[in-house]
Simulated assay, not measured.
Amino acid sequence: MAFTIRPYAPADLLELYRICLLTGDSGADASHLYKDPDLLGHFYAAPYAVHEPDLTFVLTDQAGVCGYVLGCRDSEAFAAWMEAEWLPPLRQRYPLPPEGDTSKDAAMIRLIHKGYMPSSLTREYPAHLHIDLLPRAQGQGQGRKLMEVFLNRLRELGVPGVHLGVGRRNVGAVAFYERMGFVCLQTFPWGYEYGLKL
């Protein structure tokens, strides 16, 4: 199967939402977990493509977009932009759910209201990223190629380091990041934060 990596185009935005959902359960399909299929993408995919399209790359095959890597060069600046521009309309659209609502939708809506909180690693590792591939694109070296495109772009921009978070259950992703040279810097109940000096 022939794969191509290319820069993001605005017409790809719906595909980013789709892939974010289809990989949103620690790399597995999360579509059965959410009533609103856009909630994950509102927080973990779309804002990056809108704010920093030059740091968004998509993987395609004959069937269309099958993966992406995206992120930001400065997590503090990204957080400020999220708070000023991206999140206020979403907070109006999604009111805070009742305290007793323990659904996945409610958890994401609460995260939208809480806002994006930059990692404590941002001084040395100011950039951060998300990478997701559909199953048909996995296990063929495409994740590494996507990551290399993204990291080389950060190097061109003079960014000194990049970090990312990964859930404990996503053992395949943990192994992938370690193969890419990322080092585990912080451990949390939900998972780990990894960093890479550029």
Rank of each mutant, 00 (worst) to 15 (best):
I5C: 03
Y8C: 10
A9Y: 01
P10N: 05
A11T: 15
L13H: 03
L13G: 01
E15G: 12
R18F: 04
R18H: 13
R18N: 08
S26D: 14
S26G: 12
A28L: 10
A28C: 14
D29S: 07
Y34W: 05
D36F: 00
L39W: 00
L39V: 01
F43V: 11
A46K: 12
P47I: 02
Y48S: 00
Y48E: 08
Y48V: 04
A49N: 09
A49V: 12
V50D: 14
H51E: 15
E52C: 15
D54V: 06
D54Q: 15
L55N: 05
T56K: 08
F57L: 13
V58A: 09
V58G: 11
V58H: 08
L59S: 10
Q62N: 07
G64T: 06
V65R: 01
C66V: 15
Y68C: 04
Y68H: 15
V69N: 10
G71A: 09
D74G: 15
S75C: 07
E76N: 12
A84T: 13
A84L: 12
A84E: 15
E85A: 08
E85N: 11
L87N: 09
P88Y: 11
P89N: 06
L90V: 05
R91H: 06
Q92S: 14
P97R: 02
E99N: 01
E99W: 01
T102E: 15
T102I: 02
T102R: 11
L111K: 15
H113D: 07
K114I: 10
M117R: 10
M117C: 12
M117L: 14
P118K: 07
P118S: 09
P118L: 04
P118V: 12
E124G: 10
L129N: 05
L129A: 15
D132W: 01
L133N: 03
L133D: 02
L133F: 06
L134C: 13
P135N: 11
Q138L: 07
G141A: 08
R144Q: 10
R144W: 02
R144G: 11
K145S: 14
K145A: 14
K145I: 02
L146K: 00
M147F: 05
F150M: 08
N152C: 06
R153E: 15
L154K: 09
L154R: 08
E156S: 13
E156V: 12
E156H: 06
G158W: 08
V159R: 06
P160K: 08
G161S: 00
H163D: 08
L164I: 07
V171S: 07
V174H: 05
V174K: 12
V174M: 14
A175Q: 08
A175W: 05
F176P: 03
E178V: 09
M180Y: 03
L185Q: 08
T187W: 04
T187A: 13
F188T: 14
P189C: 07
W190L: 07
W190E: 13
W190F: 11
E193H: 02
E193P: 01
Y194R: 04
Y194W: 10
L196C: 04
